[in-house]
Design a protein around this nucleic acid. Sequence first.
RNA 1: GGGGUCGUAGUUCAGUUGGUUAGAACGUCUGCCUGUCACGCAGAAGGUCGCGAGUUCGAGUCUCGUCGGCCCCGCCA
Length: 588
Amino acid sequence: MKFKARTHTCGELRESDIGKNVVLNGWVAIRRDLGGVIFIEMRDRYGLTQIVFEPHYNLDTHEHGKKLRSEYVISIEGKVRKRPEGTENALLTTGQIDVMVDKLIILNSSETPPFPIEDNIEASEELRLKYRYLDLRRSDMQKNLLLRHKMYLITRKYFDANNFIEVETPILLKSTPEGARDFLVPSRLHKGKFYALPQSPQQYKQILMVAGMDRYFQIVKCFRDEDLRADRQFEFTQIDVEMSFVDVEDIFKVVEGLMKVFYKEIMDYDISLPVQRLTYDEAMEKYGNDKPDLRFGLEMIALNDVFANSAFKVFKDSISNNGIVTGLLAKGCGDYTRNQLDNLTDFVKKLGAGGLIWMRVKENNLEAPIAKFLSDDEKKNLISKLGAQNGDLLFMLTGPKIKTLTLMGLLRLEMAKRMSLINENSKPALLWVTDFPLFEWNEETKKYSAMHHPFTSPRVEDIPLMDTDPGKVKARAYDLVLNGNEIAGGSIRIHDSELQSKMFKAIGINEEEAQEKFGMLLNAFKYGAPPHGGIAFGFDRLAMLFAGRHSIRDVIAFPKTSSGMSLMDDSPSLVDEAQLTELHLRVK
RNA sequence: GGGGUCGUAGUUCAGUUGGUUAGAACGUCUGCCUGUCACGCAGAAGGUCGCGAGUUCGAGUCUCGUCGGCCCCGCCA
């Protein structure tokens, strides 16, 4: 089918183009056939233009135009005309003009789409994913992909300007049991052996430092076979960064610089630097979360000293077992009904809490089922410590430290929702969380494991603790948090083999095992590894936040559902027996 | 692995205590209509009530199972 190259896009024509003969190519967005005259809104990536078929203007073309339906692909030639007085459409950038059609070529017809191609549609996400090519035809989604594209450019420009080099690393590599579950790829040539897809290019980027690349970055796909969430997909994109001869502050400077450029170029907003910081311990104690949302306060308060000598058995047991009592003050919520409170109790119980202690503050006293177990002093101290006033509601949780703080952190978020404390338009709350624990106690294996990864450097002053009290060792690890979302995480790495051995020993990996699992990196380190460190951004999450969305699926062209299916291509799927045989596999 | 929630026309939804022929809006189709922009008017077609069992004289509605979407906990170095 012959058609001419467009002279203009569908978002381009203005009053200054009146009188021009133009060619437009695009889709039929909306048809309004008034019988004697047909109006078509023609759409492409750039916008909408109203084209007009009129019998007096061109009888044959008008006749032909009657065939048009939604989403037909057309090419038209016509003359730009000023719209008659009073019929301009201020909602369209092209609303001052019409294109009177001289010639229409129908390049393709279309079945009626299952949902309209427009913004603010009510189609279910399931349907949108099945017909993703139609979903992506919507300007809403095209805007998101355009934003993503812009972010790739900003990223590459920024790192290039700062002397970083983008290097690609392998997609097929050795499986390492540490960390997330690997996606495995069976080897055809090596019977019974497997490659893994990268969870991140961690070891490769460190090796690039050994190779003297000095400053590396990469926009890279990573893969983790873990359950999906609104902000987690099997495959996701990182901005991966590594630098030599640096300490924490150098990394922060580079990252903050990038965030500044992002905000400036995407939102035209000047963020104030440096970004504020909290240690992991502070974040957990005040917000019950290692990625706290600081757009609102609602801080938790540790109450162990208030109840240090409490006769209340629940507190007494908890505190003597090294647990914590944490409190949360909900200002002005003293009028919550018993039903609402039962509902909140249910909320924390379902998350694993034993129960929820609540108290209404009334006439400078506390009204609650457990009030009778507390001494007058305790009540007084509790009120003053939380800064509670009449009409307030307070919550307490007690139990093992991290678990209890986490639960209260979830209640904090729930209360923030109920109290409407989260304003989506408030200024961005950027935050560094620092001094993460180096180790994490694994109850199942009864062993310590690396919280970040086993190449993370401890704080120098904590190195002696690695032998005596591993739980107390802090790492030179950090996360960047934006509005309660972890958007980047990294660490200064170990580059000294003696310290590395100590690290492996602490997490119960002997020399032989270390060589077997991490030999590539350990061998490289024998030949002059510079001190180095880095960070990796969750690119999709960042794009999601800049797009003002609540799911990374909205900024990924072809995402999977929360059960890991692709509704458009119906994967995962069964494969031929022959394929399995070739790969030396048998399905149990 | 666990919790919550949803699944009815192409789409978004309503559907009472289990009871006649399952409704509405939008969309689609047909006819009329020369300035619409949510075009209008008149009419029509369109249903495996996710799927499978069970209870019942009778199931969209109740029970069990199962599949799928979304959210969360666990998990995600």
